[in-house]
Structure formats: structure tokens, C-alpha cells
Nucleic acid binder design. Structure first.
Lengths: 276, 276
DNA sequence: ATGAAAAGTAATAATGTTACGTAAATTGTA
DNA sequence: TACAATTTACGTAACATTATTACTTTTCAT
């Protein structure tokens, strides 16, 4: 949630930003405050605080406070202290893994189940799915392709922006695309999505809350991870994105019932001869 | 908090016990309920619920809810239970994430730090590194390539077995290869590694303990993940492999000192213009 | 200058909390 | 044992706080 506020901050309205700053400055205090005291601290009106909460995908102030509280609680369990140059290899490994776990816990707490169900429904109405991502997100897109094509519909992943554009132009209203981006601000992916929308394809995104990409998507899965700790290696956001898409894939498989289960088993047996 | 309720339960008054039972029966639901709905569910009055909260050292219902929420967020059970077809989307997501976390914890417990240091040392003596993996492991290999080429040495990933063979034949004793495989029994990857060894390259593997692949490698990172639970989607072993390689990459970067840090920062700035 | 978006005011609804009274249980005394 | 006296448990209803909605004013961009 804290990461979510940080990444959404710039996309918020002026007085909502004031609220964001107040909360970020003292998260622990905020979870115990009423709407009134936060409004006063930020010198804004109370409805503005509510609007702020809504902008962060919460239904109201209470839910916002609960989520924030949970975020703070899980922060304490797995310290994601940054790696330093004088760590022993054991400390290093522990820090990295704990950081990864912390971001998974965050995903668990912030995942929007409505989005999940919407996405599943959209998928069922489509006859093909394409995954777009560049750089690190290209890995996630490919991983998703592997998962999804076992579900019985054509699934493709493109990393090259030019090919993404070309492919997006050829979609129709029975197509679904999944745009994956850490920041949600990559020009290439935004352009790709615009083209896909012109083709009337359904757009799912896996990116930062309130980012330009999230705003133009039909359904967004918010994945917000602290930038700071990514200096050495941006593995955390990638893991988070992968797990979100895994949940989506499994959700679809489960909805598909017995039939789809057998399909999955068949896909697995098909490669058995490859092993000693 | 849950434990607290349980142990305090018998010392509570009769109607407060009813409240305790309601909360214990559905803690997740309770944190989202109002005092009223809990009172109704327990067939007691609202003040009784407050008294119940006070008995648990909370100043009011709100504080109780916050504490309970934090408790739930940080409860570190993470026991993996298999996904079933009648899970709600929430249960499903929770199970998948818990499974992923469980496998991370497993990595943390079984990671061999000696192997880590050996691998770092081997890397320092090499002037190039290649990653080989097929199927799901190809994703991991590509991810590793992204991480490692920022460290200043040529890094390549190959998914195609034929190309792997060809490339492995062209290595020398200043080369390092990383073979990634879930089972460690893929004929293709075993063949690739044999060729690489003939070329005198150093062989690191990320695979199952005691598997054929592990046995013929110079250094192995054991990654063992339950097969059974992979029916729907084999994301867990992939996450585990990725995190192991991330630890290796960060370990190398940290050993590289200030110089390498600047290199990483440079790599990051180079793509800034891509964003809006 | 006009319209759309943003922020605030004031009324309303909901929720939590307190004060008080009644019923039940407990204790002491005849 | 019976019957008050006293304490404890619980609920009712009034109250206060807090969140939310509807509406108005302001601000900004065109």
C-alpha cells in the first residue's frame, strides 16, 4: 500500500497529493487517525480524503486504513532492508529472499479480486491472447505465454515494440492483450495499447496504480513495488508480476472445469519423452 | 491477536465468549464487519462487543479491528494447500501466493552458501557466461541474462537445444555456463553440458538435488519443489530458480564494489528516455 | 466567457460509545 | 433453606463521533 501510494502520488489531484504526503510522512500515525484529523493535517476537506482513498482502489476510508495497517504489519515481519556491500553471502541471500517474500505478501494484500473475475470473464469471450512487455517485463510476458497457451487458445508474447505495434493493429474485438510494465509509463507500450484499443481488443494491464497504462486499460492489476530497493536487481517486481499472471491463469483453468484439467494433463504428458 | 483471543476465551463472560467464537470462526470476515453485524452474528448487543474488545486490552472496536487485521496480514503460516476447483478467487490467490512463499522459504533454508561463494569465485575467473534452459527454464535463463550482462561481461541465453550444443562446443576454459532445469533429467540439457565440459567450461547448475545434471556440474544450487502441486501451473520452481540466480548476481555485484555499482546505475539511466 | 474538473460546505447516514436500568447471579444472614 | 443485599452481567436507548453523499463554489483551461 505504501508503495502503491508512492507510485500513484503523481497521478493524483493537487489536494489529494497533500493527503498522500501526510500519510507517507507518518503511516503508523495515520492508521490510527480519523478522517478528520488527516484532513486537518493535510489542510484539505474530509471528502478529499475519501476521494484519495477511492483513487487507491479502496471503497472507503475504513478499508484504506485496514489495508495500510496490513501493509505496515507485513513490513515488520520481513524486513526488506537493502543489501549493502559488506553483507556476508548469507545475509545477502536472506535479505533478497525476504524482500521477495515481502513483495509477495504485498501482492496478496492488495490484489483486486473484482479485477480478477472481470479478467477471467473477458478471457472467456476471446479467442486469442497476446502478451506485450519490454525489458524485464518481456520475461514475464514470455512466462505468461507458456502458461496461457496450455489453456487451449492461441497465446503469443512479443518483446519488440515494432512487432507489438504491427500485431496490435491486426487484432479484433475477440482478442485480449495483456500489457506488462513496471512503471506503466513506457512510451512504447502505451502506443501499443492505443493501437490495440483502436482494434477493439480487450486490454488487461499489470502495472503501477494510476499510471498512464493503468488508466487506459479495461482491467488493471496493480503491482506496486518500491523502486529504491531495485538498484542491484529488479527481481521483485518481476516476481510479483509473474505471480499475478499465474493467479489469472489458474483462475481461468479452474473456471474451465474438468475439461481444461485434462487438457493441462495432456500438455504435460506431451513432453515426457524429453527426460531420461 | 488470534492466539490472544483463544487463550482469553475461557476467562471471558458468557456473551463475550459468543463474540470470541464468531471472530475466531471467521477472522477475515470480521475485520471487515461493523460492530453491528458482529453483534447480530453472535446474538448479543453492541456494547457487549465493545466490552469484548476492552477485555482484550483494546481501547475500542476500531483498535481491535486494526490489530486483528495486522495479525492476519503477518500470520506466517504459508502452508501450501493444493488449489481445488471449488475455490473462490480469493482462496485461489491466497493458496498460490502462499505456495510461492513457501517455496522461497525453502530456498532460504536449503541454499548452500559454499556453492554461492564458489560460483562467485568461478565467475571472476571467466570472461563470458552463457545460460541454458528449455521450456519453463528458458524464461529463467533469459531473466538471468538480463541481470548478468549488466555486470560487465558478455552474457547470453539460449533456449534452443541445437544452438545450445553449437554454442557449448565453442566455449573455452574462461567460459562459464549455467544450466537451468527443473528436473535435471532433460536429455537435451545433459547433452549440452557434456559438450561444454569437453570445451573445459565451468558448469554451474540450478536444478534438483542428486539429479544427473547436478552430478556432472562443478557447482550445483539445489532447487527442489514439489512436483504434485504443479498440475495447474509450474510457477513455483521458476520463481525459486530466479531468486537463486538473483542472489548470485547480487553477490557478484556486491563483490565488485563501488565500480560495479556505478556500472549498474549507468545501465539504468540509459533507458530513462523511454518513459513519459 | 464558458464549460469541465477540482475542491469545499453542509446535510445525512452509519457507526461506535456512554449512561443508565434491569435481570441474573452471588453472597451473607436469619 | 429462604430471603434479602450486593455485585456482576447484559441490554436499551440516547448520544457522540465519524464517514459519506449531495450539492455549491471555486479554479483552471480553452
Amino acid at each position: 500500500m505504501l508503495a502503491k501510494i508512492k507510485s500513484a502520488r503523481d497521478a493524483l489531484r493537487k489536494s489529494e497529493q497533500k493527503v498522500a504526503d501526510v500519510v507517507l510522512a507518518d503511516p503508523d500515525g495515520s492508521v490510527q487517525s480519523s478522517i478528520q484529523s488527516i484532513a486537518t493535517k493535510a489542510s484539505v476537506s474530509e471528502p478529499t480524503v475519501i476521494r484519495f482513498c477511492r483513487a487507491l482502489d479502496c471503497v472507503g476510508f475504513q478499508q484504506f486504513k485496514l489495508r495500510l495497517a496490513q501493509d505496515l504489519a507485513s513490513r515488520g515481519t520481513f524486513f526488506y532492508r537493502d543489501v549493502t556491500t559488506d553483507d556476508t553471502s548469507k545475509e545477502l541471500a536472506t535479505k533478497i529472499i525476504d524482500g521477495a517474500i515481502a513483495s509477495m505478501v504485498q501482492v496478496r494484500n492488495q490484489l483486486n479480486y473484482e479485477s480478477l473475475e472481470q479478467a477471467i470473464e473477458l478471457f472467456e469471450g476471446c479467442d486469442r491472447i497476446e502478451f506485450y512487455g519490454s525489458g524485464g517485463s518481456a520475461i514475464v510476458a514470455e512466462d505468461a505465454q507458456l502458461k496461457f497457451f496450455r489453456l487451449g487458445k492461441p497465446a503469443i508474447a512479443y518483446a519488440d515494440p515494432h512487432i507489438q505495434h504491427a500485431s496490435a493493429a491486426l487484432l479484433d474485438n475477440k482478442s485480449m492483450i495483456v500489457a506488462i510494465s513496471h512503471s506503466g509509463r513506457s512510451k512504447d507500450i502505451l502506443e501499443t495499447v492505443k493501437i490495440a484499443k483502436q482494434s477493439r481488443a480487450k486490454v488487461i494491464s499489470v502495472t503501477a496504480t494510476k499510471s498512464p497504462l493503468a488508466e487506459i486499460s479495461d482491467v488493471n492489476f496493480s503491482v506496486d513495488v518500491d523502486e529504491d530497493s531495485d538498484i542491484f536487481s529488479p527481481v521483485k517486481s518481476r516476481l510479483a508480476q509473474m505471480i499475478v499472471l499465474d493467479i489469472l491463469a489458474v483462475g481461468i483453468a479452474v473456471k474451465g472445469g474438468e475439461e481444461m484439467l485434462q487438457q493441462l494433463a495432456r500438455a504435460r504428458r506431451a513432453i515426457d519423452f524429453k527426460f531420461v
